[in-house]
Every structure is written in structure tokens, then in C-alpha cells.
Design a binder for these strands. Structure first.
Lengths: 119, 119
DNA sequence: ACAACATTTGGCGATTTTGCCAAACTACCA
DNA sequence: TGGTAGTTTGGCAAAATCGCCAAATGTTGT
């Protein structure tokens, strides 16, 4: 963390990870891989206050994970880069491997369903 | 977020992301792609209090990102799964793409050096 | 212009994270 | 056994995050 550039790179990466580091936000990202959704649709899906969801969306957008698109009075959110999901699957693999090796059972009893390439 | 399993998966994923969601921890992970390092070596590299670094390491270990290995009085940390770095590069790509598209310039002026496959 | 819907923003208490210091603990060595 | 280097843990104050409510803003249709 000595040099400026290192610091900047670490900050930029951490910002993205931090944005994804909340269960609701992870879930939102997953939902958006299937199709674009409005704030109210997302709100219903995640079962939280609209204002809370709006703030989560703002954090994800700020981090560059999502974009929004105004359609009438609705705001439609979508993934900037669907590759983010590949990336989440990579995490899943690591989690599952961990569980198998008994190193640390992060995910007790949960089933992770992984999509095949087609979407 | 309605069903138990969805919640558990989101929690597990978020835990990993959260662990990576701090500049110092991101940097530690990057250092460990090059070679395994002891707590004191890492402490010097990141320029923070030993106790702080130790706690960061504990968080990364708890999340399943790192393992440790006691060698004498030293504790050597290493990446559980080097694939985590591919995954960080994937983030970098997204960041750079963003910057290029001007959607959100997350990383003003920083140069991200990406390793080729050989390490 | 008004009402109804969709979303964002401000604010606030509650909780969590962060980073330093001091103290405890462990392993090695003289 | 005492000393020292390496690491972890406890504690605490400062800072950040979270989630809800209320209020403001924007949009559509009448």
C-alpha cells in the first residue's frame, strides 16, 4: 500500500467488492441476470422497504455494477456486465470446494444452482 | 429473498465479497498471488499495525479466501484458490471498460497491470 | 392543476466496522 | 528459565453501514 497507484487500484477493486458484499445486493444482481427489473419489481422480490432497495441500487450503480434506464415513471435497472455473474459462480465454486474439503463450511445445507452457458 | 435457500446462498456469497471489500484486504490478496507471506511480511507491505493486519487476515480466512500454515513462530498465509485473482481481473476489466465508456470513471489515472497466465 | 404512482433523498437510531493500543499467548533460543 | 520475536485477542473511540420513516421529486393521466 506504499505507492499511489497500488492504493488507487485497491480502492477501486474494493469498491466493487464492497458493493456486492451485502446479501440483498447479491440477490439483486442475481435477479438482474435473468431480466431487467424496475425498482418496484425488485422491491417486491427482495421484500424490503422501497427506500432501502433504492439505496442498494444506488450503491451498485455507483460501483459500476448496474446501469439504470428511465422508462416513463419507472426506472429499469440492468447489469452493466453479465460477466459479473460468471464471477459470482467462481465464488460459488470456491465455497462449495471449501465445504467439500471441510475447511470451512460457509454454506451449510444450501444448494447452489448454477446456470449453464445459455441464458 | 423469500426462500431460505436463496437467503443462505446470498449470505454466503456476500460474506466472501464483504471480506474482499476493503482496500487493504484486496491488496493482501494480490500480494499473496505472488507468493505466500507471513503476518510480519504482510504488515510491512501494507504499512499498518500488526494487530490490524492480523484482523484483516482473520476475516479473509474466515471467509474461506485464505489459509494459514504455522511454521515455527511464524504464520504463513496463502490463497486457498488462486482463481480468486482471475476473478479480480474480471473486476478490473469491468472497471476499465467503464472508464472507457465514460459510464463511471471509477479509477481515474490508475494503471492496472494484468498478469499473463504465467505467474 | 390535481391525484396517483414510482423513485430518490434526508434524517435518525441501532448496529457494525475500523484501527490503534495494550495485554496475552506461543514458539524459539541462549 | 528468562528473553525475544511473531501473532492474536480485548477493548475502545471514531467512522461507516443499515433500514425504516417521512418528505421531496418526477411522471402520467384526468
Amino acid at each position: 500500500m506504499m505507492y499511489e497507484n497500488e492504493k488507487r487500484v485497491a480502492d477501486a477493486r474494493a469498491k466493487v467488492f464492497k458493493a456486492l458484499g451485502h446479501p440483498t445486493r447479491c440477490f439483486i444482481v442475481e435477479l438482474l441476470t435473468k431480466k431487467t427489473l424496475s425498482v418496484s419489481e425488485l422491491t417486491e422480490a427482495v421484500n424490503a422497504d422501497v427506500s432501502t432497495v433504492s439505496k442498494h441500487l444506488s450503491i451498485l450503480k455507483q460501483a459500476g455494477v448496474l446501469t439504470d434506464n428511465k422508462q416513463g415513471s419507472k426506472v429499469i435497472y440492468s447489469l452493466v456486465c453479465p460477466c459479473i455473474m460468471d464471477f459470482i459462480y467462481c465464488i460459488d465454486d470456491a465455497i462449495v470446494k471449501d465445504a467439500e474439503k471441510g475447511i470451512s463450511c460457509i454454506l451449510p445445507g444450501a444448494k447452489i444452482e448454477r446456470k449453464t452457458t445459455g441464458n
